[in-house]
Nucleic acid binder design. Structure first.
Lengths: 209, 209
DNA sequence: GTCTATAGAACGATAGAC
DNA sequence: GTCTATCGTTCTATAGAC
């Protein structure tokens, strides 16, 4: 097995430190120290600290997006229209698969995502590509068919709520890193709790207003 | 009307800038410049940048906590036990009252809260006092009585989800600050959507696992 | 209470040798 | 592709005059 190259080691170190200390709380020096690389290597491989963050974010998000997309494809290929529960599971499931609570790395990943998404600076949030929007729009359409009578605005509200619940929950677990919360059993429980919680929420009758 | 003192002007400026640029993205210099005060005034009045953040956070959170507490008192003083919907409204309502979407300041406030809560650094999150925990524990107990059969762990999961939905939704609205999202009508709609969404989610049957 | 001035340290980026 | 060395900037915190 060949040793990982400098570029990969910088990505690994940056993913860890950005998650633990935030983007602004992490210096390029800390990243290169942890990676066992030189300070100038970041500039060479990525151009700047902001572009390094974008590379880290893309590497983390990509498999989640792909799994969400594949799950939706599978549901839409069937004959009966997918139920709300199935859509919720296809959307939220990959967030649990790629960020297993039992795995310390998974908890870190969820922390990283929330850290990035909640940063006020455009420099930090502005890495998203068209792929992310496409997945969201496809699920929006599928939920719209499963929930007729819901206005587009209320549907968008509910989609935001769904993302908020899955992402933020794991972060609180990580912040008060009790070992019990990080066990695989706890992760599986959280997955089922989330699906129950979100299926009921998404299926609520339209508010009308 | 006496002009506001330096201390208050620093608090106002810090609240605005912390919300817009985050804690680490805001320098003490930027705060004192906006406040029309001197750089050293922060050290004199608050001791350090971190203690200034704590003062800002307390000033924002206090009225929300008080309203949540008063709402619960009102429900518990009645004869029939409060329904889940009433508890949801008493808990989430103050977040909308104190952070009206139609008001630019309210949108900023919600951004500030999420910025603080999602920061990885203990320095940033560690300002909470016993008051915050008390309110959460009281609601936890009330929801527990309204939802028998739910395990304490699943109940805590659902409470986290409730907070995530109300807080995060407003932030996304603020980040893509389309004027339509900031109208008072949109704020009232979001309030009703949230109560519908969360009542259904909280009332879901126990998962059991 | 509010100011000036500055100490003291850390930062991101890059030029240039190897 | 990886290093050393350093430039120029920005930061918080504080000492001390008024």
């Amino acid at each position: 097995m060949a040793p990982p190259d400098t570029r990969t080691q910088i990505l690994d170190a940056a993913e860890r430190l950005f998650a633990e200390r935030g983007y602004r709380g992490t210096s390029v020096r800390a990243i290169t120290d942890l990676a066992g690389a030189n300070l100038a290597a970041v500039g060479y491989h990525f151009g700047s600290k902001a572009e390094l963050l974008a590379a880290v974010a893309r590497r983390v998000i990509e498999p989640i997006n792909a799994a969400q997309c594949a799950g939706l494809d599978r549901l839409l290929a069937r004959t009966p229209d997918p139920a709300v529960t199935e859509l919720v599971e296809a959307f939220a499931g990959p967030l649990f698969d790629e960020m297993p609570a039992g795995d310390e790395g998974g908890a870190r990943t969820s922390r990283l995502i929330v850290t990035i998404l909640s940063d006020p600076a455009e420099e930090v949030r502005g890495w998203t590509g068209p792929a992310e929007d496409t997945v969201r729009e496809r699920y929006l359409a599928a939920f719209g068919r499963a929930l007729p009578g819901l206005s587009p605005e209320e549907l968008r509200f509910r989609m935001r709520g769904m993302l908020a619940v899955t992402a933020v929950d794991r972060v609180e677990v990580y912040q008060q890193h009790s070992p019990a919360c990080l066990s695989p059993a706890a992760g599986e429980a959280a997955r089922h709790w989330a699906i129950t919680f979100l299926t009921a929420a998404m299926s609520a009758p339209p508010t009308g207003t």
